[in-house]
Simulated assay, not measured.
Amino acid sequence: MKTILLIAHLIAIATGTGMSIANYINIRIASGETGDRRAALAFLRRILARIGDIVILAIWITGIGLWLNLPPQDGPNSWFIVKMGFVVLLTLCHGLARMTAGKMMRSGDQSLYPRMELLVSGVWISALAAIILAVLAFET
């Protein structure tokens, strides 16, 4: 069971990493666009964000499942604790990016693109670190 959970966990984190890199590229392209092209890229970001919500939920569920399957005498190791910090950072950056995107959509404030870029970068860097740390934390 632990191996299946680990596979699902790593796939979820890898999916989140790929999606956040795609979102980062989208933001970089959209910052120089206007009109319909910018609107189409914003629509794509909204779709990626909705899927991202599900992916982050999958990361948390599989991660908690892995934690619950740790042997009681071992408990979480230091790699796991550091990994959890990066998962919390990933979740925080994702949530703040979603809030910033909502603010951009409501107000039309295009000056928030640099903040979005920073937050999305935080998501994919945190996810990348979490993948590496998950392998170290859950080695069999």
Rank of each mutant, 00 (worst) to 15 (best):
G16R: 10
G16A: 04
G16Q: 02
G16M: 06
T17D: 01
G18T: 03
G18Y: 08
G18I: 05
G18D: 11
G18K: 11
M19W: 13
M19L: 15
I21A: 05
I21Y: 10
N23R: 13
N23W: 12
N23V: 01
N23E: 07
Y24T: 02
Y24I: 01
I25K: 03
I25M: 03
I25F: 04
N26M: 04
N26A: 03
N26C: 06
I27L: 13
I27S: 08
I27K: 04
I27T: 13
R28K: 05
R28C: 04
R28I: 02
R28G: 04
I29E: 08
I29A: 10
S31T: 00
S31G: 00
S31H: 01
G32T: 00
G32M: 00
G32P: 01
E33W: 07
E33T: 02
E33N: 01
E33K: 10
E33M: 09
T34V: 02
T34E: 09
G35K: 05
G35F: 09
G35P: 04
D36H: 06
D36P: 08
D36L: 03
R37G: 01
R37M: 05
R38Y: 11
R38W: 08
R38A: 12
R38S: 11
A39P: 14
A39I: 12
A39L: 14
A39M: 15
A40S: 11
A40L: 09
A40D: 14
A40M: 08
L41D: 07
L41T: 07
L41A: 08
L41R: 12
A42E: 15
A42P: 15
A42L: 15
A42Q: 15
A42W: 13
F43W: 13
L44K: 14
L44A: 15
R45Y: 14
